[in-house]
Amino acid sequence: MNGFTSTDNVFPLRPTRRHALQLAGAAAAMILTTRLAWAQNNNGSSLVIKGKDGWLFAGWGSLAQVDTAGIDRNVQLVARVQQWLKEQNIELVLLLLPDKAHFYADRLPDDKKVSAAVQQRYALILDKLQRANIASFDDFAALKKVSTSGAEVFYRTDQHWTLDAADATAQGTADLIRKVKSQLAGNAGTGTPLGALTKERRYGDLAEIFLSPDEKKQVGREVYTVRKQAEAQGLLDDAPAPVHVTGHSMVQPYFGYPQKLSNLLDRPVSLNWKPGNIGPWVMLLEYLESPAFKQNKPQVLVWQMFEPSFNQGPDAAGLWDNASIMPVNTWTQRVTQALGSAKP
């Protein structure tokens, strides 16, 4: 049995280089317009930071400043969502993913430094989430263990994490899910079986999207480790998923996170995600308004957010894709309507 389904942007669980390149192309179309606007509003900042030894970093996050007011506002908004979900007997798990620059600050160019405030930003957000009694865990610490073991956490020319990092995060997520929901519905043996590992050599998305052909040759391709689809695994599973993951391309099947989570929980896991600059607010809303949610409400909803953009709310004009932007009141009204809750 499969144990893994996707409700949006379905990519086969047998990842290939062709699918990876399709992802890069889709991401390019969704990122460029908004990020160019961001760069223009931030004194012409580059869309990609070219670091040492061919390392590339996204150039649209601040390495110097922390928007504490925006963080506080969004913690309160997440807490409201958690309460509305509880009214539907759904537990929320907030998956906060850390920035690549934390792990490879020594690969940044000499004129780019991570400030002391930004170094503490992940811990600051996590503390505020936990003070608000929002279920979350320290993924920064989990990924530091990966780094300490000698494995890479992120790919050199890509925004995305490695299989080792995705696996470690899936373990942390599974452990937290067991704390918030001791008994998941469904039958043992319905989780995703894990296939053999394979290697693929290609350009990372930052190189593929933002570098010229000559620059791409200079930084070179790199080797990606991905899991093949297990022979016993079909494309769809009829068993309803008690756990749903909503997020961006970090949690897509290509990098292995949802399959590993399903395997660890031994239950089906459903997923909706999109590449590009869509943002977590619209991704959650799209799921809650979907037929899939109405037909099978999960016991646990894993909502993936990203540390550098956690301060950006649903109304972050010029930062999210234009189609994703809406007033906070509009967003909350649509969420409560989708959940059948009273209006805030």
Rank of each mutant, 00 (worst) to 15 (best):
253 P>Y: 02
249 S>V: 01
74 N>E: 09
16 T>F: 06
183 Q>R: 11
236 L>K: 15
218 Q>R: 12
159 Q>N: 06
222 E>T: 03
195 G>P: 05
95 L>R: 06
71 I>T: 10
302 V>Y: 04
276 G>V: 05
265 L>P: 11
22 Q>F: 04
235 L>M: 13
97 L>W: 06
245 V>D: 00
161 W>P: 01
120 Q>D: 14
141 A>P: 03
254 Y>I: 13
139 D>V: 13
24 A>S: 07
89 N>F: 05
159 Q>W: 01
22 Q>S: 10
211 L>E: 13
155 Y>C: 02
327 P>Y: 00
187 N>T: 10
66 V>Y: 05
311 N>E: 10
186 G>K: 09
186 G>N: 04
83 Q>S: 11
289 E>S: 15
307 E>F: 03
183 Q>Y: 14
146 V>D: 04
177 I>F: 04
253 P>V: 10
250 M>I: 15
265 L>W: 02
10 V>A: 03
142 A>W: 07
105 A>P: 02
53 D>Q: 04
210 F>V: 03
295 Q>N: 09
270 S>G: 14
32 L>S: 03
89 N>H: 15
236 L>A: 02
179 K>T: 12
96 L>P: 04
190 T>Q: 09
60 W>N: 08
86 K>P: 03
174 A>P: 10
63 L>Q: 02
75 V>M: 07
263 N>T: 02
108 L>C: 06
50 K>D: 02
18 R>M: 13
78 V>T: 14
78 V>Q: 05
314 P>Y: 13
163 L>I: 10
110 D>K: 02
235 L>D: 15
321 D>G: 10
227 R>Q: 14
91 E>L: 09
4 F>H: 09
284 L>C: 00
208 E>M: 08
197 L>C: 07
162 T>G: 08
330 T>F: 09
343 K>C: 06
96 L>N: 07
21 L>N: 10
35 R>Q: 12
84 W>C: 03
296 N>M: 01
309 S>Q: 12
26 A>T: 08
237 D>M: 08
248 H>T: 04
50 K>F: 01
329 N>V: 07
242 P>H: 07
137 F>N: 10
304 Q>M: 13
